[in-house]
Amino acid sequence: MARVSGRSCIVTGAAQGIGRAIGEALLDEGADVCFADINAAKVTEVALANQNRAQRAGGRVTHAQVDVTKREQVRAMIAHTVEVFGKLDVKFNNAGVNKPMNFLDVTEENWRFITDVNGLGCLIGMQEAAQQFIRQGTPGKIINTASVASRQGFGNVAPYCASKWGVVSLTQSGARDLARHDITVTGFAPGVVATEMWEQVDQDLLAIGAAERPGQAMEEFSAEILKGRVATPADITGTTTFLASKDSDYMTGQIVMIDGGMTLV
């Protein structure tokens, strides 16, 4: 369908899981994509693995190592993308972390680790992408990854919930401020998605005594999903490609829930 043909996109947290799937779906629709991640070896491997996919759809692919909490690294990632593709059109702020701890055990270190990546990293990514759009004198799209945890709190992932509520607020604040530059800011909120991150969360919950057996946490979180199953990354990418395309040009300040009906808001 080539809905994003010719659009230059950056996806952070793209070495695996949802981020990788977002980037690959964009390539399938003709976009130029920079896969970015803090894990240099893994994101390089992902970019190389997608060279043929990009060529088939008429797009291009590159990659960048980035710590999204470091502004200079974010600027360098954007500069690299513009150097390779000539411009930036779409910025996905998808990089995120979680490290479950029972509520009374949450430490300052745990809080800062999670909120720095998920909150501050999102803010810096939004600011630097917007500055690039303004320099270009072109419209732009910023798309943030929230979560079902941005709509309700869970006892053993409190910093994660707080950080994702922050993503919702940043999306709304950015949409209000950047509209005058013809920059839209939207986001999406996945529920339970079968990815490497969820596998790690399952292990962490087991380690802190919040679950008694492997897989229990995912089963319990998934029990209220109206669709009757957990999501795969492919369930998410129809929406993310839409948000990156012209079809969503009149949408801003909104978070789209993609949780199979887990949370009705």
Rank of each mutant, 00 (worst) to 15 (best):
G228A: 05
K87A: 11
T12I: 04
Y250L: 06
E83Y: 00
F113K: 13
T186Y: 03
T184Q: 12
I18N: 05
I38F: 07
G166F: 00
V192F: 01
V117K: 00
I258H: 09
W111Q: 02
D247A: 15
D235K: 08
Q254H: 15
Q216G: 14
A223E: 09
G30W: 04
V168E: 02
V193M: 03
I18S: 06
Q51K: 15
W198Y: 02
D105Q: 05
T184N: 12
M1P: 09
M77L: 10
A15W: 03
E24W: 07
T241P: 13
R75F: 02
Q55S: 06
A40G: 03
E109C: 06
F92W: 11
T107L: 03
I22G: 10
V61E: 13
Q132E: 14
M262N: 15
Q200W: 06
A79V: 03
V97Y: 00
L170S: 11
S150R: 01
A36N: 06
G13P: 13
G19P: 07
A146V: 04
L226V: 13
T237Y: 12
G215R: 13
G153L: 01
L206F: 04
R176A: 13
T145C: 14
V265M: 14
L178S: 04
F35W: 08
K164C: 07
E108S: 12
T138A: 07
P214G: 10
N52G: 07
A207K: 09
G96R: 01
T232C: 08
M77G: 05
V185Q: 12
I124L: 11
G166C: 03
A217L: 10
I142D: 13
Q16S: 14
T237I: 12
A231M: 09
G96V: 03
A76D: 14
N50E: 10
L123P: 07
V192N: 07
I78H: 10
R180V: 07
A57L: 11
A146R: 07
Q172C: 04
D204K: 09
C9L: 07
A207S: 15
M126Y: 05
E108D: 14
V33W: 06
A158T: 12
R213N: 05
V90P: 12
M101Y: 03
V157Q: 01
V61D: 13
R20P: 02
N156E: 06
T195P: 14
R7H: 04
G137V: 06
D89N: 14
E72D: 15
L48E: 15
P100L: 01
V201M: 01
M77F: 05
R60Q: 14
D37M: 01
E220S: 06
T69G: 05
N94E: 09
Q136Y: 02
N98G: 04
S163L: 08
L26R: 13
R3Q: 11
